[in-house]
Amino acid sequence: MEHVCPNACPGGCEVDCNTCKPVCKCDKPGAVCQDPRFIGGDGITFYFHGKKNNNFCLVSDTNLHINARFIGKRNHNMKRDFTWVQSIAILFDNQQLFLGAKKTATWDDSVDRLALSLNGEPIRLNQLEGAKWESSGVSIIRETSTNNIIVEVEGKFRITAKVVPITEEDSRIHNYGITKDDCFAHLDLGFKFFSLSNEVSGVLGQTYKPNYVSRVNIGAKMPIMGGGKEYETTSLFSPDCSVARFKGNNEFNDDIVMVEDLALPSLSCTSGIDGEGVVCRR
């Protein structure tokens, strides 16, 4: 049976096997697209704007942690930035996987703007539809010859990632103020998880808890998830947001966090111990 993507799916669609109908990729549970618009594991749509040039924890579980770096522009008529997800860091076991959109001025979809690395080593993926790369349990396949991939770690997760620009039409409709020197290339993402625990947290992760009750106003025109501070991390590869659950497969997680050029904050604990890099525990 041949299907046609709905007009509302500029980023592509997938066939839902239960209904046998095409569904926009950005309308499925686990989607993180646009400004950024989330579809939670509970099916509820919400927005989390974060802050430009900052990093936020999307998912944090005992052996899986996903951070996102937000880029954006200040809207002087509002009290927030316009933001988009420029890159993500995925921590699992003792591995670090990076997916990012390269900065570009004028968009040309025939030019690949994906940046990929595993444990600090660049991943070079042939620019052919269906090209596949595998190493250390990670599999990456190109859905199209450029800018569109599927990343999978068996038994843990599957992620679709597509690099997309802010078009002149998008900028005009939403008043983004995008200029020709930077089209704010960013990622449209789709997450599917296979082994989350009941303690999972993070902006998106918490929505997969069995008894999760959404705290957004679902009746609002733009339901917004707040709590930016509790999800913020000190760097893209740091699982140190206040709701972090990540331990990895190492008891003390010594090899997971990249500490180069990381300015550790100064904290004071109720025990009286303080100083740079101190972690308070209760």
Score class of each variant (00 low, 15 high):
Gln127Lys: 12
Asp112Ile: 10
Trp133Ala: 04
Phe193Ile: 04
Glu143His: 14
Asn217Val: 11
Asp42Ser: 09
Ile166Met: 15
Thr179Lys: 08
Cys269Lys: 12
Pro22Glu: 11
Val111Ser: 01
Ile178Pro: 03
Thr207Ser: 12
Asn75Ile: 08
Ser171Thr: 15
Asn54Thr: 10
Arg37Met: 12
Gly43Ser: 12
Glu134Trp: 04
Glu230Pro: 01
Ile273Leu: 14
Gly120Asn: 01
Val15Ser: 05
Met1Arg: 11
Gly277Glu: 06
Val4Pro: 01
Leu189Val: 06
Leu64Tyr: 00
Thr179Ile: 05
Leu262Asp: 00
Lys73Phe: 03
Leu267Gln: 10
Lys73Trp: 06
Val203Asp: 03
Glu2Ala: 09
Ile90Lys: 00
Ile149Met: 08
Asn211Cys: 07
Arg142Ala: 07
Cys280Met: 14
Arg37Leu: 11
Ala161Pro: 04
Asp188Phe: 13
Ala89His: 03
Ala161Asn: 05
Phe38Ser: 14
Asp109Met: 01
Ile256Tyr: 01
Cys5Asp: 07
Asn63Thr: 08
Phe48Val: 02
Phe184Glu: 15
Asn217His: 13
Asn147Tyr: 03
Pro210Ile: 07
Asn77Thr: 15
Leu264Glu: 05
Asn54Cys: 08
Asp61Cys: 05
Phe194Val: 09
Lys132Asp: 09
Phe191His: 08
Thr146Trp: 02
Leu267Arg: 12
Thr146Lys: 04
Lys28Arg: 15
Lys102Met: 15
Phe70Lys: 06
Gly219Cys: 04
Lys192Glu: 13
His49Ser: 14
Gly202Leu: 04
Glu199Lys: 05
Ser214Arg: 06
Val85Cys: 08
Leu99Met: 11
His49Ile: 13
Asn75Val: 09
Ile166Asn: 13
Tyr47His: 11
Gly72Thr: 11
Ser110Asp: 06
Cys9Ile: 12
Glu134Cys: 02
Cys17Tyr: 09
Asn119Glu: 01
Pro36Ile: 10
Phe46Lys: 03
Asn75His: 11
His3Asn: 03
Glu129Tyr: 00
Cys33Asp: 08
Ile173Ala: 11
Asp42Leu: 09
Cys26Asp: 07
Asn55His: 07
Thr207Ala: 10
Tyr212Thr: 07
Gly50Asp: 08
